[in-house]
Design a protein around this nucleic acid. Sequence first.
DNA 1: CTTGTCCGTAGACACTGTCTACGTCCCGTG
DNA 2: CACGGGACGTAGACAGTGTCTACGGACAAG
Lengths: 179, 179
Amino acid sequence: MRDRLVRAGVELVAEGGTVSLREIARRAGVSHGAPRRYFPTHVELLSAIAREGFASLGSCLAAVPAEGSPRARLSALAHAYVEFATANRGMYELMFRHDLLRSDRLGLRETSLPLFESLADLLAAARPTAAPAVAAGAFWSNLHGIIQLWWWGSLPLATGPDSLPALIDAAVTAHAGPS
Amino acid sequence: MRDRLVRAGVELVAEGGTVSLREIARRAGVSHGAPRRYFPTHVELLSAIAREGFASLGSCLAAVPAEGSPRARLSALAHAYVEFATANRGMYELMFRHDLLRSDRLGLRETSLPLFESLADLLAAARPTAAPAVAAGAFWSNLHGIIQLWWWGSLPLATGPDSLPALIDAAVTAHAGPS
DNA sequence: CTTGTCCGTAGACACTGTCTACGTCCCGTG
DNA sequence: CACGGGACGTAGACAGTGTCTACGGACAAG
């Protein structure tokens, strides 16, 4: 039943529909009060849905081949990250809506933090720095910001409608050095 | 009356309260149907409120002294930008909630795009590049992403609770070169 | 004085998340 | 086998939301 609700939610998110508690319940074919038995609040159900998203993102990034120079691997990771976001827009937007989620129900320690550390290692290998964690945070933030502002609409307006890859490359070059 | 509603909304946003249509109307001391006469929908009222935020951000950035090297000016701008965001968190969050706003009612052409172009000029002066607009977009995205992920909570967890200035400096160094 | 237009009020509607009372089924115990 | 109890899903209520519509009252023009 938990799974049924989460799956219905993931479907709704993927379709871009409303992810209200009642809509999820309808999709799952149960009454509007049923989810409460398993998720005491809407936030907890949404968090469980977003958790699927983080797991999915993690496997997407894990599927990137670990070949080539650190710089090349960083570039491939960055493009894979943005590709996941654009291919799963609703889910990505949900995943970072901290006002709708409980961060302690997302399982970040299991999925995100390991990725973050490998990112820091890769960055340190590409361009030695005093604080690899800070460098990794800044790099990740750059990708995240590009995605958000791109969707927001002002970035394509200012840099051209087809400049998303160029923006990613600019971020990679800025943080990992020229190719 | 328009102004009264917008001011009430700005107050509510600043206080972190709910910015529902009816709450704004209550704050303004009118009935819940009154705003409809001036803002046909909730989105339009929120857009007018966010417009104030963009104007405020614009004057904050315009107040940054135009002295020193391009690199130094970029750093000062970046810190001022993040300072505005942290000092006006509710407003900043609203300003980039594209699902709650109508971007054509925000007056971006008057406030943001000029700033964006001066950013591009500064960046081109600090570090020659083939596409200044792309570089400016990537840099702005970096600041935006740092703010969002910082608030989201995983960034301070990964890089330390006091590393916000270090993250900004890392972004500036990445995009504008070492000092 | 009458007419008409603006403007704010107030109620309705559908929807939301949360809470609670109520059946219904199933499983372990006497 | 009968029975009590707990787990589970339903259904209704409540306060809140955004939107829509009918209404009343002020105020200026003819």
